[in-house]
């Protein structure tokens, strides 16, 4: 090389690392969403009054609610789009697999990111259809509590009393936890915020975060199914 003259750098979003940053940063925002969503819905344990008024307040945010919803749609869309773009490149880069397959350190949850992500995506669509668009049971729309608010409490009790709904929900939050177990530790690596010493700690934190999200989300259908709340 005779000079260190810099050729034009590719667009940030076309580069391998740029795409990964988009996935990591959108991942951070999605973790923010599932945290708030979980905290809000744990209100079910405080009784019908708490969760119905939480829902009422949320819906009275009006324009703000729609901004957040559109934002989430864009963020989730980018997360999936860039992951798929990376995956396509990875498939092109790697030839046929070795005759002798070794796992070489990779964890089950790291290797199943695409599967867990896509099942969770499918679940989110079902979850929206069930509780937001209320397509699976249009009766939900007419369920009001004594104060004339939408009776979210009754809707959750009714939905999770169904074995299939509760089962699919549990499976999906289980896969979400697997996705987080790799994703949380991974985003620190991708954003360059780790070191040889810090990485094992982030990996432990990642597992703890995944378990906490699983316990939090699983507690709702389990409590309903086993009639802890009714």
């Amino acid at each position: 090389m005779t000079s260190s003259s810099q050729k034009k750098a590719p667009s940030f979003f076309a580069s391998s690392i740029g795409k990964k940053w988009v996935v990591a940063l959108t991942g951070v925002l999605l973790i923010g969403f599932i945290t708030l969503h979980l905290l809000g819905n744990l209100a079910i344990f405080l009784g019908p009054e708490a969760i119905n008024s939480y829902s009422e307040k949320l819906h009275h945010l009006g324009v703000l609610l729609w901004i957040v919803r559109l934002g989430l749609l864009v963020v989730a869309g980018l997360h999936v789009f860039f992951t798929m773009a990376l995956w396509r490149e990875n498939k092109k880069a790697s030839l046929e697999k070795y005759a002798v397959r070794q796992k070489l350190e990779t964890t089950l949850y790291a290797r199943s990111m695409r599967l867990s992500g896509l099942v969770v995506l499918g679940f989110v669509l079902f979850h929206l259809a069930q509780f937001t668009w209320e397509l699976t049971n249009p009766d939900y729309k007419n369920w009001m509590d004594a104060l004339g608010r939408h009776d979210v409490y009754r809707m959750l009790i009714s939905a999770f009393s169904n074995l299939w709904v509760a089962g699919f929900y549990l499976l999906s939050v289980g896969l979400l936890a697997l996705h987080l177990a790799h994703g949380v530790a991974s985003l620190f690596q991708t954003l360059g915020l780790t070191s040889e010493k810090l990485r094992p700690r982030f990996e432990r934190v990642s597992l703890i975060v995944a378990v906490l999200f699983f316990l939090g989300y699983a507690s709702i259908p389990l409590a309903v199914f086993f009639k802890v709340v009714s």
Partner: peptide, 29 residues
């Protein structure tokens, strides 16, 4: 035409020179 890192760390597991995958975090940064 190399692929993208998925943070599997298989590279670190086989590296004959014991390079730590923390260099990947440094590169990302």
């Amino acid at each position: 035409g190399f692929g993208n890192c998925s943070n599997y760390y298989a590279c670190e597991a086989v590296c004959p020179a014991n390079i730590s995958a923390s260099v990947i975090a440094t590169l990302n940064r």
